[in-house]
Design a protein around this nucleic acid. Structure first.
Lengths: 140, 140
DNA sequence: ATCGAGAACGATAACGGTTCTCATTCGCAC
DNA sequence: GTGCGAATGAGAACCGTTATCGTTCTCGAT
């Protein structure tokens, strides 16, 4: 088993997901994508590689992985969801409004601001999501 | 015409939307809702009030209003969209994870942080969205 | 007040992404 | 190898949303 594949297999096991052949195929394909993809796109790519994976399995796997925090789910295309393999840690996203590239922002540093804003309205914050929309270096 | 109704009518005109009777009905019903609602929920409420508004019109009106910035669209219920009448200015949302109440946070103050985070990755930020999830005073 | 052009509307069919069903296969413990 | 529960594939079903199309409404011009 190649090193990369073993890593993904470990990633599944560590996340409490049984590492089946199909799930590895889905995860490998997702790792190959630089941008975010829809479930259907991922399924097409798999077909092109002669994987016999069914659409339902792709959906099931993606749902499972997002539940476990292995993949991010973005719904910035109103209607359909986009998936993206990401580091497990807390992070946010930069979206290029022209080429739709997605970049992760690892440094959050908003906890204080979030806590203050929540407190001001009687809330206690448990989580937060931030999306920055703009133009990437290439599209500017 | 009651004052409240006239206000809503003005709101439509100011937003560049022709103020028809149907659109006023939809907007009135939306103003009556304290929480966010789906298009279908709004349509049921309208039927209960013996409005003859069609589902398509409700969708059309909500799409128009969100395009003009009169209503916010939230997609925190994966799949279906929720609509909410809101102040037109830039703001963010606090979501109670228990009762699903939504509160607007008018004070943003994140522009500097956003600009810095974007710059760090070669982006120029044009907009940003923040959602804070937590527990409201009542649910705590 | 009437008219006409174009916008808006209602009913319903169509669409598309996602989930469900169920018979079959797989993976792992024994 | 055997057995059993989890996972899978194919396709139907589901459901929120959008498109279609014939009718109705709105509003400025007359």
């Amino acid at each position: 088993m190649p090193a990369a594949e073993r890593d993904l297999s470990d990633l599944l096991e560590r996340s409490g997901v049984r590492a089946t052949a199909r799930r590895l195929e889905v995860l490998e394909e997702l790792a190959r994508e630089s941008d975010d993809v829809t479930a259907q796109q991922l399924w097409s790519r798999l077909r092109e590689r002669d994987s016999g994976a069914g659409l339902a399995t792709v959906y099931r796997t993606l749902a499972l992985l997002s539940e476990k925090g292995v993949v991010d789910v973005l719904s910035h295309h109103g209607g359909e969801q986009c998936y993206r393999l990401c580091g497990g840690a807390h992070h946010h996203h930069l979206l290029c409004e022209k080429c739709h590239r997605v970049v992760e922002v690892q440094e959050c540093g908003l906890d204080d601001w979030v806590a203050a804003a929540a407190k001001q309205h009687g809330f206690v914050a448990t989580d937060h999501r931030v999306e920055i929309v703009g133009l990437c270096a290439a599209c500017r």
